[in-house]
Design a protein around this nucleic acid. Structure first.
Lengths: 204, 204
DNA sequence: ATCTTTGTTAACCAATTGGTTAAACCATTT
DNA sequence: AAATGGTTTAACCAATTGGTTAACAAAGAT
């Protein structure tokens, strides 16, 4: 075989596809561009992944399986809500800084095809809120945190952590910050967001 | 002239284009589909708007000028931060419920072409944070609210209000809610979000 | 050495799509 | 009623694009 090079072709294709799909989206991506980036012939894409849709799904699942388990891990550990919020915020922002296109990619593609997430739900690593729900309920009952539904709290945590990446161009324009200053704003949020949330829900 | 009907053609085109562009995005939209929706010949689109890009820009500016001034109005009125947060949250969520595709459309297209917002910045109604910044500073100095930068507070307000619309499919899957339940969650947020923010920043 | 399987390429194809053109249409002016 | 000029249409066009095919190359099996 011609292979056994530095890297097998299938993986080279997936990496190129990742890069193109995540910046241009499913519709905007071009098979030729992916082939060029992978340094191979366009026909190879079809040889390994049959068609654009399947190649895209491989990339999407790969991206999703990067984001989701992290979330799940924090939701299901045994720390308090306060600790969870602190860990999650710090970890997640650090993670997304390294993969800035990820949240927007997933959100954009799920809005284009909402049914697509159903395929993900079967996955064993798919985030599950049950434990978190019970925990919120208990801490509310015990007066540790102020009354709030787990769903709303979860939404707020996600929103505060992810939104600044998704809406970066918009927020940059409104706040009149350049790329460097925005980076700093994000950096500050690693602690800022957790404090903001805890200030809001913690009983004194 | 053939016009002076119930509605002039130019406006029919813009309305059709709005609907198609906002659901499919610039790349996903098809000129033929817009023409069909407007009930006219495809050539008319070019007659009135020359090409896809210009038609898109007309739609985008229209959408942006719907969102931005609302924001500006609240930022620049004379009420306290607490009142501003309450008004903004309630108004904005009510507004977006009526135009659910708007935030995602704007965010998606700005991410595709971040330079595009520069054209908007000249617009006199473009949101300006100056007054809000001074106000935050003063209320912090006077001990009305806890120390926080105006930029971070602004980001948080935007995130908590807008994110649930943008990430709807994702949050629905994670929280295991159907369309009806999600609608209720959003409805609750009209007051929930403001309370959450105020709880966090208000000094006791 | 030859055969078979797997990997790779260049050339090709059909469908889609944004955009153009020339002719037709029709209300108003002359 | 003939000319005018903005409006509308059907037909067409060139470029792009996802996908296919047939031939070829390399490696292992016999």
């Amino acid at each position: 075989m011609k292979k056994t090079k530095d890297e097998n072709t299938e993986e080279q294709i997936l990496n190129a596809a990742k890069s193109i799909f995540q910046t241009k989206g499913m519709i905007g991506a071009r098979m030729q561009e992916i082939a060029d980036k992978a340094g191979i012939n366009k026909a190879m894409l079809h040889y390994y992944y049959r068609n654009k849709q399947l190649l895209f799904e491989a990339v999407f699942k790969n991206a999703f399986s990067l984001l989701a388990p992290q979330l799940n891990a924090v939701l299901n550990d045994d720390s308090s809500i306060e600790e969870k919020v602190k860990h999650f915020t710090s970890n997640y922002i650090t993670f997304i800084v390294k993969h800035p296109y990820l949240p927007n990619f997933i959100i954009q593609e799920l809005n284009r095809n909402p049914d697509f997430i159903l395929k993900m739900k079967d996955n064993p690593g798919f985030p599950n809120l049950e434990k978190f729900k019970k925990q919120v309920q208990i801490e509310v009952e015990n007066g540790i945190i102020k009354p709030i539904s787990a769903e709303q709290l979860f939404m707020n945590i996600m929103a505060l952590n992810i939104f600044p990446f998704v809406a970066k161009p918009l927020i940059m324009a409104f706040t009149n910050t350049d790329d460097e200053a925005y980076k700093q704003l994000i950096e500050d949020r690693k602690t800022e967001v957790a404090d903001f949330i805890i200030n809001s829900i913690k009983n004194t």
